[in-house]
């Protein structure tokens, strides 16, 4: 199966968007080779600013550039892009609702060998809590490309969560991203698996495992974390009566929480959460880490079976 990292797709899309839209400027904090904004920098050096290892100033300068009329993309690793400059994103970007897109790469534990200091497991939670912020997590490179193009044209703050490691390509070239919509990739009756990011591919594999055991699982790609598609989630809570969420993020504050908040309000049902269990990451190969932290198709299938049986 073809693999591509979502950061790679982002960097390529950005470089193409630079041709179409002269208002786009890109900021990076000395990580442009890793975040892939170097592809834009090469084409449009006059619209690319390396802000040095100073993420806080990068975020505030992004706000200023937006006030000055530019469409701003700023990139760094997710830990720094959201954590180091959280309060600047809050007060200088979200509070005045400025046109800044925070495209953060190296999110989650699949950063790998760099270890826990560099593995963001809380970025969705803190970005989701900010008024005026929208949060997007692509399931593959194709969706990352479409989201990048959408964000270039869509006014206002947004957080785009991207990964380091190559991941299976799920969608074909005519894939159309619908912002704010959770896409049902596979229908099912017994349990709904709602996933985002690289866990979508694993959710599809888990559904295959479940099928072999006679459990009919729906698979939903909740790639817009905010605004959250409560309609689709509530509909599947009602239809299936049990939900398993799967995300490469803490089980606190991310997709699992968004789903639990929704069903608690709209249509209470049991929710099992596959994610990082209130722990920091550590060094290791991405695939080893996913297994060590229980982010596997087997873990999803196991949880789904348990919930389908006991609902």
């Amino acid at each position: 199966m073809e693999k591509i990292a979502t950061r790679e797709a982002y960097g390529k899309a950005l470089a193409e968007l630079g041709k179409e839209d002269p208002a786009i400027v890109v900021l990076d904090a000395d990580l442009s080779k890793s975040t892939k904004t170097n592809l834009f920098a090469k084409e449009f050096p006059e619209r690319f600013f390396d802000m040095g290892i100073a993420e806080s100033n990068m975020a505030a300068a992004a706000a200023g550039l937006a006030i000055g009329g530019q469409t701003v993309f700023m990139s760094s690793f997710a830990v720094f892009a959201t954590g180091r400059c959280f309060e600047i994103i809050r007060n200088s970007i979200c509070y005045p609702k400025l046109n800044v897109k925070i495209a953060a790469t190296h999110a989650g534990i699949t950063v790998g060998e760099d270890g826990g200091s560099h593995q963001s497991v809380e970025d969705i939670a803190i970005m989701r809590a900010l008024p005026n912020m929208r949060v997007f997590v692509p399931a593959d490179g194709v969706e990352a490309d479409r989201m990048t193009r959408y964000l270039a044209k869509s006014e206002g703050p947004a957080y785009l969560r991207l990964g380091r490691s190559g991941q299976p390509v799920l969608f074909n070239d005519d894939y159309q991203f619908e912002p704010g919509k959770a896409a049902v990739l596979r229908d099912g009756d017994d349990v709904a698996i709602i996933a985002c990011g690289l866990m979508v591919a694993k959710a599809l594999e888990a559904a295959d495992l479940l099928k072999e055991e006679g459990v009919s699982a729906a698979v939903i790609n909740a790639s817009t974390l905010k605004p959250f598609d409560e309609e689709t989630v509530a509909a599947y809570a009602e239809k299936c009566g049990a939900i398993v969420t799967a995300e490469e993020h803490s089980v606190i504050g991310g997709l699992g929480s968004a789903v639990a908040e929704t069903v608690a309000k709209r249509c209470p049902c049991r929710v099992g959460m596959i994610g990082v269990d209130d722990l920091f990451g550590q060094s290791g190969r991405p695939d080893e880490l996913l297994t060590a932290y229980g982010l596997t198709k087997e873990a999803i299938a196991e949880k789904a079976k348990e919930l389908a049986k006991t609902k």
Binding site: V25, I67, G68
Partner: peptide
């Protein structure tokens, strides 16, 4: 009011960003 300020330090950095935008344009 050109920038929402109050959290100290940020307004100066925002001003730098505006000056960068003017330079780009």
């Amino acid at each position: 009011v050109e920038a929402s300020t109050g959290s100290l330090g940020q307004g100066f950095a925002i001003a730098g960003g505006i000056a960068m935008a003017m330079k780009v344009q």
